[in-house]
Design a protein around this nucleic acid. Structure first.
Lengths: 300, 300
DNA sequence: GTCACTCATGAAAGATATTTTCGTTTCGGT
DNA sequence: ACCGAAACGAAAATATCTTTCATGAGTGAC
């Protein structure tokens, strides 16, 4: 075996090459070349024998055609064809810009959702004020205790942040009940931190505890999609999340959640960096504990 | 669980799949998988024998690895590799991510986190089995009631899904307590749906209620990063989430959550499509209700 | 420690796919 | 009608891929 390295198969050039070489081809070869140019993806799935049958010719002719097109043999033509097919496929992506429709096939739904969330992440990262973020991180790292307020979908984000902070040894709460939240907020004082998470910035149940914390002298942070909304009134630092367009089938909650989670992750990693000496072993310990638990229960 | 491998050869998902399946691979297979993920273009140019030599293993091992990655044999893996190589060549980012370091400035943290999560989303979307997803959606749309099980970070995802399903008028629960979960599971019967969300696939507290639901005849769905893990044993449909590599400052929970949320969103939108007549007014109604609430309390 | 057992592994046999060879067919010119 | 050249495909030869099977390394029980 020699394993010849053919000239780079020049992706899009195939159709052109077929046209150029067509005159110098015999009838059978033209049939093969046509099939290949017409449906690269389909042909890539066929063996020599398969392609020979499809075009009503023989294996030998297929190989001859491959040679004429500049490849050492059919095997290499096939590889090039697969590459071409993949490129074509990926080029056919921009159907994504449209909204999700009721009759979209499930594969499109996946693609569109993924794309939208990626977009949301990019927007959020671009729009995040790193100065405010840094200030919030500093406050968190030094806090005696931290409260995180959120309701509904944002409540889950609040809990997510709380879980993470607990993992690195900080004291954090995410009261689920609005009354409990206010009760908690009353306990805060200077040096503590309160974080309110609300997309609209107008959720009374979340604004209220933040206001209390603010008045008690705690450092307050608002994570909201509306930097001009009521909640910012009581926030020392405002972190803006991004809102991509919503639609009937894609409620705003979906993208705001993605955005909020990115912000929350940034807060977490920032704090973990600042408190590395304490955070690293704490993280390792909680990881260990869970691993054992899984080992013990998972595989009987 | 049946469906040992039914994964469609989804081109972009390869690196992710390697990462996902790596734990269940033997040493030699890992060497092969690594080579393939590391240099798709180079490997596409090699025959089985060549790749076996390169990785210091045997042809048999190479074929075995190809199988594990979801292809019928090496030939098909090679074809997919060629496709991948072509895509990379045509201007797709090589995906070089440096880990987050302790002394990274906060702006870098934001950028890296956003990029990683975007990557995770892309991987998940590419690796999601739309057939399984469709089946799960169908079951959900027709379910009398739905239970969603999850613990820790995955518990929040479970709640997120539950909240969404409730919004479109379905009956869904996400019991937080493991005992409560089992108690709930006992109530399920044929036609109902149980969904287990667990990254490791080995969380006993989540497997147990799913097993109960499974035995009661409910349709069971597992959302997990490990398609070969114990939880899939009791799952009619397995939805695989993607795992990007974790690091000290970036626990696995972070990217698995992103991935899980995408899957959950897909489920939700899929169900909303199928039950559009019912879902659309329900969504509108809940939107209305919240808007009034914000208006009333937000602006005093 | 030893034994029995499982499982990963590669050598080689077996099956396919590709390439080459070679004889037949076709076609244009005389 | 006959000749020669080129096209073509059947089948042999080769390369490549897949499967089988024996071996040995690792693991847990005793």
């Amino acid at each position: 075996m020699k394993e010849t390295f053919a000239s780079p198969p020049a992706p899009g050039a195939l159709a052109a090459k077929v046209r150029t070489l067509s005159p110098s081809m015999t009838r059978s070869m033209q049939r093969v070349a046509e099939a290949v140019a017409g449906d690269p993806a389909g042909c890539a799935a066929l063996t020599v024998t398969g392609l020979a049958e499809l075009t009503g010719t023989s294996e030998a002719t297929v190989v001859r055609t491959a040679r004429l097109l500049g490849y050492p043999g059919y095997r290499d033509l096939r590889l090039a064809l697969a590459g071409l097919a993949a490129q074509q496929q990926s080029g056919r992506a921009p159907a994504i810009t449209t909204d999700i429709a009721v009759d979209d096939p499930i594969a499109d739904v996946v693609a569109k959702l993924a794309y939208d969330e990626q977009q949301t992440l990019a927007d959020t990262a671009a729009g995040l004020d790193t100065v405010q973020l840094g200030a919030a991180v500093t406050a968190l790292a030094a806090a005696r205790r931290t409260d995180v307020y959120g309701i509904g979908a944002s409540g889950l984000v609040a809990q997510d942040l709380t879980q993470k902070l607990l993992r690195i040894g900080l004291i954090a709460h995410a009261p689920g009940d609005p009354h409990l939240a206010v009760t908690n907020a009353v306990q805060l004082r200077a040096g503590d931190v309160a974080i309110a998470i609300t997309h609209s910035g107008s959720t009374g149940d979340v604004i209220e505890p933040l206001r209390v914390a603010f008045e008690r002298g705690a450092t307050t942070v608002a994570v909201t999609g509306r930097p001009d909304s009521p909640v910012t009134q009581y926030a020392d630092h405002v972190l803006t999340t991004s809102t991509s367009r919503e639609s009937e089938l894609r409620p705003a909650a979906m993208s705001s959640r993605t955005s909020q989670l990115l912000v929350v992750d940034c807060l977490f990693v920032g704090v973990a960096q600042r408190t590395y000496e304490q955070a690293a072993p704490a993280l390792a310990a909680s990881y260990e504990a869970l691993a054992h638990r899984h080992g013990a229960r998972g595989r009987p």
